[in-house]
Amino acid sequence: MDVNPGHLDDPESPDAAPVGDAAAPTLDVTPATGRHTVHRSGGGRRKLWVGALGLGLVVVALAAVLFNGLSDASTFFYNVDEAVAKRSDLQGDRFRMQGNVVPGSVTRTADGVDFTITYKGVEVPVQHAGDPPELFGPEIPVVLEGTFEGGAFRSDQILIRHDNTYDEENPERIKDAEKDAQQAGAAG
């Protein structure tokens, strides 16, 4: 829709509106409406392909950046064995460590819990400040946030790493779970 005021229109220009009354009725400014309205183009097919190519490059670049940025596997946590291997580098740094709680190692302390976590046979004693989450327990995979202090790991946040296993609860299992809980309590 291009309705120029007359004083801006250059009559010399090749695309100037024809002067005179006869031109007016041929100027169709009715908007095309309806379900099959086509949004008309000024560009050609070639422009579309160039655009598509550029778009493809941007998409590939984006994917590469995202993949490289995230593919450093240790960004979120170290497993216990990796953390122990890098202990001298990590000394004093705050990082996350993943492992399984060793059954029977959990003891309550004045300000939290002490326990041992293990991964691939490597064990590290943990001193945790704060209440452990509800799902915390023996053999549960956890991610701890904290620092190495001497031989132990001081954590202030326990994240439960739930895997995608689900089981319908049944009385037998509840009994088993309660027995486990009692054992853990007796140990502490």
Partner: peptide
């Protein structure tokens, strides 16, 4: 439309993130 096409690339990345990288989120359900 250009944004709508580019943005969809992130769906497989988000979906596979649990397989490709270590994280907290459990694997696909």
């Amino acid at each position: 439309a250009v944004i709508g096409i580019m943005a969809v690339v992130n769906i497989p990345i988000t979906h596979k993130a649990v397989d490709w990288w270590r994280g907290l989120h459990q694997e696909k359900t």
